[in-house]
Computed example of a mutant assay.
Amino acid sequence: MPENESWEYSLSIPNDPRAVTVSRRTLRLILTMHGLIGLVDVAELLATELVANAVRHTKGPAALRVHWAAGVLRIGAWDSDPAPPEPPVPFDQAVEWEREEGRGLALVRACSELWGWQPLYRDGSRGKLVWCELGAA
């Protein structure tokens, strides 16, 4: 894939736990079609965590955003809650590993090259975008 090629996709999703699977499968298809199969596994993990947080912790709609430019893949999840996400807890701190929640942003931080969040407006609604980046390596 040419490094100078750029593209962006956005998938609007309802506040429904099934949207996480739809988002993950859509991301796999996007990356495969663009010849970025080497990023699929980590990108799926990151997108799953971001979208799951957007669906689990808010009541409104959400969106998966995928952007490729200059050899960097940016994955983001928009949600309708403008409050910042809870900071990730480091893995070496007291985290109950049996729990099914509470490690999402720690995984994002550990598996991505860069992550963050920003307030964002979408279709006239306030909210935030939580994002992370992966290089093509």
Rank of each mutant, 00 (worst) to 15 (best):
Leu45Phe: 01
Leu45Ile: 12
Leu46Ala: 08
Ala47Cys: 13
Leu50His: 00
Leu50Pro: 03
Val51Met: 03
Val55Phe: 01
Arg56Ser: 12
His57Val: 12
His57Trp: 07
Thr58Pro: 02
Thr58Ile: 10
Lys59Ala: 08
Lys59Pro: 05
Lys59Asn: 14
Gly60Asn: 11
Pro61His: 10
Pro61Tyr: 04
Ala62Lys: 01
Arg65Leu: 13
Arg65Cys: 11
Ala69Trp: 04
Ile75Pro: 01
Ile75Glu: 01
Ala77Tyr: 00
Ala77Met: 01
Trp78Cys: 02
Ser80Asp: 12
Pro85Gly: 01
Pro88Ala: 11
Pro90Asp: 10
Phe91Arg: 15
Gln93Ser: 11
Val95Met: 15
Glu96Thr: 10
Glu96His: 13
Glu98Cys: 11
Arg99Cys: 08
Glu100His: 09
Gly102Ile: 05
Gly102Ser: 08
Arg103Gly: 04
Leu105Ile: 11
Ala106Asp: 02
Leu107Arg: 06
Val108Ser: 05
Ala110Glu: 10
Leu114Asn: 11
Trp115His: 07
Trp115Gln: 03
Gly116Asp: 06
Trp117Glu: 00
Trp117Leu: 05
Gln118Asn: 07
Gln118Leu: 14
Gln118Trp: 02
Pro119Thr: 11
Pro119Cys: 09
Leu120Ile: 00
Tyr121Gln: 14
Tyr121Leu: 05
Arg122Met: 07
Arg122Phe: 02
Ser125Lys: 14
Arg126Phe: 01
Arg126Ser: 07
Arg126Glu: 08
